[in-house]
Amino acid sequence: MTPTSPHRSERQPLDTASPLAVHTVDAVTTWTINLPHVGNAITGTDFIAAFESAVDTANSDVAVRAVILTGAGKIFSAGGNVKEMADRQGMFGLDAIAQRHAYVDGIQRIPRALARLEVPLIAAVNGPAIGAGCDLAAMCDIRVASERASFAESFVQIGLVPGDGGTWFLQRAIGYERAAEMTLTGDRIDAATALEWGLVSRVVAHDELLTAAGELAARIAKNPPHTLRMAKRLLQESRTGVLESTLGMAAAMQPLAHRDPEHAARISRWRSS
């Protein structure tokens, strides 16, 4: 493993034309859903491709040690584009067989992309996270919420089921019973309830949201990059794998960590402190 500097000094410009604006400072990248005119709806091939590209870029850049995901404007994400559904636009105008493939080849590419993201992902939920927007937050490793945030697994209220993997992610975040309550009622919960249920790890004043998420990302980013990526992979595998598989993976990863120059440097600093 190659040692790397824990920080980068360059500031990449915000791409305001992209449906997912990407901005990197030091070792932390921020992804901003940049479609406020449609409530940051998760819609269109450009949006999905931008997510996949952002994941691939973060994975290929060992200097990136944490990612923050947030929304532009007042909404984290309103989920699917209900107007397109009502007007039968795009995939919503297809027959059932074609529409099934459109889900697989469309929105379901997002959970698959995030499943292969190697670095920790923090959702900074700045406002309502509705339907697929709620699921998108649940796909993140850690969620920090503004006091103005709210969450709803609202698919049933418009006669749909979660088509993006929400039933898988939500119950792993808050347990089956509470996920069932959210999924089967479609009711919205506020930030305080999300904190009580464990959907978010903390709730902060709205104006302090990105600062709080940035401070958390910085605490993560202080740690060795290769170790962070392996630790995240172990966490992911432990959610669904059996104990023996997790132990075997840990035993294979740990010698790599022992031989990382970052480990030797940190042990040396610990001994001299």
Score class of each variant (00 low, 15 high):
7 H>T: 14
104 V>P: 01
184 L>N: 09
211 T>H: 15
29 T>C: 08
32 T>I: 15
131 G>M: 07
200 V>G: 02
169 F>V: 01
70 T>W: 02
67 V>E: 01
237 E>P: 04
146 S>F: 02
169 F>N: 01
205 A>V: 12
43 T>Y: 14
183 T>I: 08
241 G>N: 05
78 A>K: 06
79 G>Y: 01
188 R>A: 11
145 A>C: 14
73 G>P: 11
27 A>L: 00
54 A>N: 07
262 E>K: 07
17 A>P: 02
13 P>G: 12
165 G>K: 00
207 D>T: 14
214 G>I: 02
238 S>C: 09
122 I>S: 02
211 T>F: 15
2 T>G: 08
170 L>T: 10
117 L>R: 00
47 F>G: 01
217 A>M: 00
249 M>V: 09
81 N>S: 08
85 M>K: 03
67 V>H: 00
194 A>W: 00
113 A>G: 06
40 N>H: 02
138 A>Q: 05
232 K>T: 04
240 T>M: 11
227 T>H: 15
112 R>Q: 10
148 R>L: 12
11 R>I: 14
100 R>Y: 12
23 H>G: 04
14 L>E: 13
228 L>T: 07
178 R>W: 08
127 G>S: 03
140 C>F: 03
46 D>F: 11
92 F>S: 05
135 D>Y: 03
149 A>K: 02
178 R>Q: 09
111 P>K: 06
81 N>E: 09
105 D>E: 15
160 L>G: 04
59 N>H: 12
28 V>K: 01
88 R>K: 15
59 N>Y: 10
240 T>E: 11
116 R>C: 06
120 P>T: 08
24 T>E: 10
157 Q>T: 15
227 T>K: 12
113 A>D: 06
77 S>G: 12
264 A>V: 13
44 G>N: 03
123 A>V: 03
19 P>V: 06
8 R>F: 05
29 T>Q: 08
268 S>W: 11
4 T>K: 08
267 I>D: 12
185 T>H: 02
156 V>C: 12
73 G>M: 12
202 R>I: 13
265 A>H: 07
158 I>K: 08
87 D>Q: 13
6 P>H: 02
71 G>V: 08
237 E>K: 11
236 Q>R: 14
104 V>Y: 08
241 G>P: 01
239 R>Y: 15
253 M>G: 05
87 D>F: 10
68 I>L: 07
270 W>H: 14
185 T>C: 04
263 H>E: 14
262 E>Q: 13
262 E>S: 11
93 G>M: 11
177 E>F: 11
187 D>K: 09
200 V>A: 06
80 G>Q: 08
156 V>R: 11
73 G>K: 07
89 Q>R: 09
259 R>C: 13
116 R>D: 07
139 M>S: 04
